[in-house]
């Protein structure tokens, strides 16, 4: 009996190890393959005849003289002017994150400290707003924005992204502020501070871990957004993600699909670095809402 249980335990373990191994391969392989392939020519990246070509770079050597080439990156960054999209992304993401966090900390703090029923209703409304497919909102923006002549501007997209970000930011910061003991700011107020002074001098110095975690997610939302940026930005103001998507259409026709591959790798690299440095915060942020229920 004991032996049987022992056996079952090990098979279960082996099965679970295999499952994890399979998952990790499935998760990592597409990225490794694409990063590696971005330094090849199209004949190797799409190597129908023999997939080992992609590894040894047969066509790349034949066409460029070496097993690796930067042609894709040159084409994307210089010829297609991808650097413009990088600058646009930097501007839009920076302002979206800063404004979202400012609005979110104030609102999240108020929601965490107010015991009234309307605070609950605001959180519920935010939850419903969080579930809205972004494209449905975009169809509401298009006509008024065209009428007011603010369509296509960076500022418009920034403020729209801030607003779309708010429900999530509010929920997250609200739960972080609930974890900061009420006594801290209340004792400051007993000592004569106004509510805002208490917030400024007592809460702000201790809130940074929560703000950084929330900021990471605001960053990801703005950086990865497609629905808003692809519909609301004019061509010269386009960010990286819609630019990559529109590359897909144009460069495929010209046979320059490696430009798109290089652009995709360029757009993913910052995320890779982000996960490397902030893995702990991202994991804690993902589970913050969940574990506390």
């Amino acid at each position: 009996m004991a032996i049987k249980a022992e056996n079952r335990l090990t098979t279960l373990k082996v099965v679970s190890y295999i499952l994890v191994a399979i998952w990790l391969i499935i998760a990592a392989f597409p990225f490794l393959w694409t990063v590696w392939g971005s330094f090849k020519v199209q004949g190797d990246f799409f190597s129908k005849a023999d997939w080992t070509n992609a590894i040894y770079g047969i066509f790349t050597t034949r066409e460029t003289g070496g097993p690796f080439t930067l042609n894709g990156y040159y084409g994307a960054w210089i010829e297609e002017e991808f650097w413009r999209n990088v600058i646009n992304t930097t501007v839009i993401v920076f302002f979206t994150v800063v404004i979202s966090l400012t609005f979110g900390t104030l609102g999240g703090y108020a929601l965490a400290r107010s015991g009234y029923r309307y605070a609950f209703w605001l959180l519920m409304a935010a939850l419903v707003f969080r579930a809205m497919p972004h494209i449905t909102l975009v169809s509401g923006y298009m006509l008024p924005f065209f009428e007011w002549n603010i369509w296509g501007l960076k500022g418009t997209s920034i403020i729209v992204l801030v607003a779309i970000n708010q429900p999530f930011t509010l929920w997250m910061l609200h739960s972080f502020f609930l974890n900061i003991p009420k006594d801290m700011d209340e004792s400051a107020m007993v000592d004569g501070c106004t509510r805002f002074q208490a917030f400024r001098h007592v809460i702000v110095p201790v809130m940074w871990p929560g703000v950084i975690t929330t900021g990471l997610f605001s960053f990801l939302l703005a950086y990865n957004d497609y629905a808003v940026t692809s519909m609301l930005l004019s061509k010269p103001n386009e960010t990286m993600v819609p630019a990559v998507a529109s590359f897909l259409g144009t460069v495929q026709v010209q046979g320059n699909i490696m430009f798109a591959v290089a652009a995709v790798v360029s757009a993913t690299a910052p995320l890779f670095v982000l996960i490397l440095f902030f893995q702990r915060q991202i994991v804690s942020g993902l589970t913050a809402g969940a574990v506390k229920g």
Binding site: A27, P30, Y226, V241, V264, I275, Q279
Partner: peptide
């Protein structure tokens, strides 16, 4: 595991 989740959906 975080890679497929955090990369932009379109990418």
């Amino acid at each position: 595991s975080l890679l497929p989740f955090l990369v932009a959906t379109i990418v």
